[in-house]
Design a protein around this nucleic acid. Sequence first.
DNA 1: CCTATTTAATAAGCTAAGGTTATTATATGC
DNA 2: GCATATAATAACCTTAGCTTATTAAATAGG
Lengths: 142, 142
Amino acid sequence: MSEQHDNLAFLIADTNRLIRQFFQQRLRCGPLTLAQARALFYVSRFEGVKQVELADALEIQPMTMARLLDQLSDQQLIERVQDPNDRRAYQIFLTAAAAPHLEEIERVSALMREQMRNTLGAEQVNHFMTTLMRLRDGLLDD
Amino acid sequence: MSEQHDNLAFLIADTNRLIRQFFQQRLRCGPLTLAQARALFYVSRFEGVKQVELADALEIQPMTMARLLDQLSDQQLIERVQDPNDRRAYQIFLTAAAAPHLEEIERVSALMREQMRNTLGAEQVNHFMTTLMRLRDGLLDD
DNA sequence: CCTATTTAATAAGCTAAGGTTATTATATGC
DNA sequence: GCATATAATAACCTTAGCTTATTAAATAGG
């Protein structure tokens, strides 16, 4: 009875829901939502940059970023430090407590890749990811 | 600066957001959310079945289905008819007003496929969709 | 046949992940 | 030195789900 076999929108929405569940079920080390995990991951890659730059990198609104950082800050995983060159801005840094969470994110990402390899076969994984990225980028400019 | 190049979860979440925007921007004929559109589409394919069966087909909870049908019913796109064999249940039918909405959904779906063909090339589209479906189904049984 | 369990729908309220608009304070360009 | 732009964020909205509990009806077992 599995239908709608040609609608990308429905299929992606579905997959999104399932992947979120996959992640949240496997993330030990306290409750991080997928969005929070993603934000934390980016902070680790771009440590010290301003919120607005992080928002830009994640392609979300500055307000959305501010809220995610609030949540991470509540859990003492990041710190806002006054930007010495701009008193309006903060630089975002990881705290020591972030390390195990980042490892956990890495672990679950690896699980996800393993799941993909099992389902699709190793050679198809990279190809699929590349294709998906192209698709996303194609949608980015309306 | 586009990073996280190997995290499916983040990539899917992103793509999901962009596709939802794509859909909502292009759906004329009144405001239907993607979830409502999807529900309406399924009703059209399985007209007359009970809510619980629809929920099952969409792989969402019966409560989630009930609310979607409320919304569609508010817009007079579907009707609940007492199931003659089960007084607890309703059979769901389209109204006449649904037809243009379904055409609109079809039109935007076609636009989406066209966008995919432009981005990926025609031969890759089917392959991609098949792969994505396999991935989803792989996630379905935890 | 009648009680126990299951099932269909849904009310109430929660969560996750965003978005918009408006405000405040600070930078910066002309 | 003023007008404009920018960084963060408060307040509130939207989309898309979920869980738990309730009511009414169906069905299974003794």
